[in-house]
Amino acid sequence: MMGNKLKNIMKNIYIELLKNTSNNEITLLKDINKLVKTEKNGKFQYFYISYFQINLIREFILNLDSNSFYTLIPMLSIYGKDEEPYLILSKQILITNYSSPEIINNYILKQLDQALIDFEFNLDNRFHCLIFKYKQIKILI
């Protein structure tokens, strides 16, 4: 009897973690590692977005498995080709199907603005591609 109660509590905690990850503010993977264990095995996949289109960020998030966590590395590429140089815009972000596209978009735009200032270049009238390097991970609670 007690085992089922504990399982339900753990399931509710897991669901709350899913719903709150990168929803009100960005959750970085490095921050969560101190609290819970993660399994990060698996291969990275890539999702390409021309410029910064919030609707494509939303589509990407909505297509994630609703019971899973993912780590996401946002990168900027001028040509959107794997063999070309790219700029990493952030440490790994923890996301789920419940994450806010607006919060993620705003965070990445802020990171991009800082990179443009730090490296003294601009993207005016230049094609560029936002690349999401991501993979599914397991949160062990």
Rank of each mutant, 00 (worst) to 15 (best):
M1P: 04
M2Q: 03
K5W: 09
K7M: 11
N8F: 06
I9H: 12
Y14L: 08
I15D: 00
E16C: 11
L17C: 13
N20D: 05
N20Q: 08
N23E: 03
N24V: 01
E25K: 15
I26F: 11
T27C: 07
K30D: 10
K30V: 12
I32A: 11
I32D: 00
N33A: 12
L35R: 04
L35C: 02
E39Y: 08
G42W: 12
F44D: 01
Q45I: 01
Y46V: 06
Y48C: 03
Y51R: 14
F52Q: 07
Q53W: 09
E59C: 04
I61C: 10
S66E: 15
S66F: 15
S68E: 12
Y70T: 01
Y70E: 01
P74I: 03
G80W: 12
K81H: 11
E83D: 14
P85I: 01
Y86P: 09
L89E: 00
K91I: 06
K91S: 15
I93Q: 06
I93G: 00
I93C: 01
I95T: 02
Y98N: 02
P101D: 02
I103W: 07
I103P: 00
I104H: 04
N105A: 03
N105M: 13
I108P: 04
L109M: 13
K110W: 02
Q111N: 07
Q114P: 00
A115W: 06
A115R: 09
N122F: 13
L123E: 14
L123P: 07
L123Q: 04
R126F: 15
Y134T: 01
I141M: 09
